[in-house]
Amino acid sequence: MGLLDFFRRQPPSAQVAKERLRIIVAQERGARGGPDYLPLLRRELLEVIRKYVNVDPEAVVINLERDQGHEVLELSVALPEKIQAAKAAAAAAKS
């Protein structure tokens, strides 16, 4: 490394690589071991929900947890705040 390089140093690319890998590996490990139909189930559920509420694709989270002898499929959908606020207003107007 010469003197000039010292002054125009960029953020090290290895750090970027490590950060990206950390995220994708964690994500892929989370999906590992679950049944193969989970991603499709997630997508189809999302389509149904979107018929009624315009939710973000990221708002549907499916988790499969294993306990001794049984499995729990946990589904959580985060509804957009605006709609919730609008509904609350509508409910208030009714009463």
């Binding site: 090290p12 690319s13 290895a14 690589a17 490590k18």
Partner: peptide, 10 residues
């Protein structure tokens, strides 16, 4: 060493 490659620890 120059930050272009991930190291063993990474």
């Amino acid at each position: 060493a120059s930050g272009e490659m991930m190291g063993v620890e990474d």
